[in-house]
């Protein structure tokens, strides 16, 4: 056990840094530029039953200290992921990967989860009930305790591996939804997905993003994410994964003090492809600065 190692739902991680789903593809673009085995793990692109093109472009906008996206879960579908992406990943990544699952109905969540659960390299299933950019499903499942619990329960009944529910901040009481997921059998909670936002192009008077709204991410959402981690930590006993605006080793520590067992890094990968590598390299120095001997001493895993 190294001083940066942590445990997430019973699986050891060399460090708590996890590139977030949707910012890291299926790992291969990043494996071209650095050894991605330095990561704790990563959460691959949100995967659905059928291939999805996603939303029309433009899908991207910028804001102060952050960005908006309305990609809309573009992915090649679970069968392609199993036949093509995972075998390619296996050659360059020798750790367990987090499989991010999305769907437009409970049956689809179960279908995709069941298939990915059987893959050796998959360590955790991260169930995305918080995508703000799709019309059917997505965030619709994550905004009420009943539907969040229903997805959790159905997926849990179909799989053996730990199930982490990724929740939306676009709700009144995120802790109550986390608790509902825990009661339905979830093994972990990841907070937060993006915040719903929009931008207007003053040259046209029209929204920048073709989908009109998009999910806000980047450093501007970090305080919101930290608050959510803190509230969820207080409400549940299962591990919490912190996600939202993390862009430095110091941010990782803040997340862990707030109660995160591991920390996802999203938008930062897009502006600096080496962001996670740098954060991992910076962690020992920042730990030393604040007198932290072992990250597992501060993390909120119970």
């Amino acid at each position: 056990m190294g001083k940066m190692s942590v445990s997430l739902c019973g699986i050891g991680l060399d460090n708590p840094v996890i590139p977030a789903s949707g910012t890291f593809g299926y790992g291969l673009e990043f494996a071209e530029i650095y050894d991605i085995n330095v990561l704790g793990t990563f959460s691959f692109k949100g995967t659905t039953k059928e291939p999805r093109f996603g939303n029309p472009t433009p899908r991207i906008a910028e804001c102060a200290s952050g960005m908006l996206n309305a990609v809309g879960l573009q992915n090649p579908g679970v069968h392609h992921v199993i036949e093509r992406e995972l075998p390619a990943l296996k050659k360059v990544f020798h750790k367990k990967v987090m499989a991010n699952v999305s769907g437009s109905c409970i049956e689809d969540y179960v279908y995709v989860s069941e298939l990915l659960d059987r893959e050796d390299q998959v360590g955790w299933l991260e169930i995305n009930i918080s995508c703000p950019n799709v019309k059917a499903g997505g965030m619709g499942f994550g905004t009420s305790c009943e539907s969040a619990a229903a997805v959790t329960k159905a997926v849990k009944a179909a799989v053996k591996k730990p199930v982490i529910m990724k929740l939306s901040p676009n709700v009144t009481d995120i802790a109550a939804i986390a608790k509902a997921c825990e009661d339905a059998g979830a093994d972990g909670i990841c907070v937060i997905n993006t915040l719903l936002g929009m931008r207007i192009d003053l040259r046209t008077g029209r929204p920048v993003i073709a989908n009109v709204t998009g999910g806000v991410s980047g450093p501007c959402v970090f305080p919101v994410a930290l608050r959510a981690v803190y509230q969820v930590r207080a409400a549940v006993k299962i591990p919490v994964v912190g996600c939202g605006g993390v862009s430095s080793a110091a941010d990782v520590l803040e997340m862990m003090y707030a109660g995160a067992s591991a920390v996802e890094v999203g938008a930062a990968n897009l502006t600096d492809p080496y962001a996670c590598k740098k954060i991992i390299e910076d962690l020992p120095g920042v730990m030393y600065k604040y007198g932290i001997k072992n990250l597992s001493d501060i993390n909120g895993s119970k």
Binding site: G22, T23, F24, G25, E29, F30, K45, F53, G54, T57, P58, R59, I60, A61, M67, N69, V71, Q74, V208, N269, L270, T271, P273
Partner: peptide, 14 residues
Amino acid sequence: ERMGCGFGACMGCS
């Protein structure tokens, strides 16, 4: 096209 990352990770410019 409007891009997020510019190197194929975000699917912003598909």
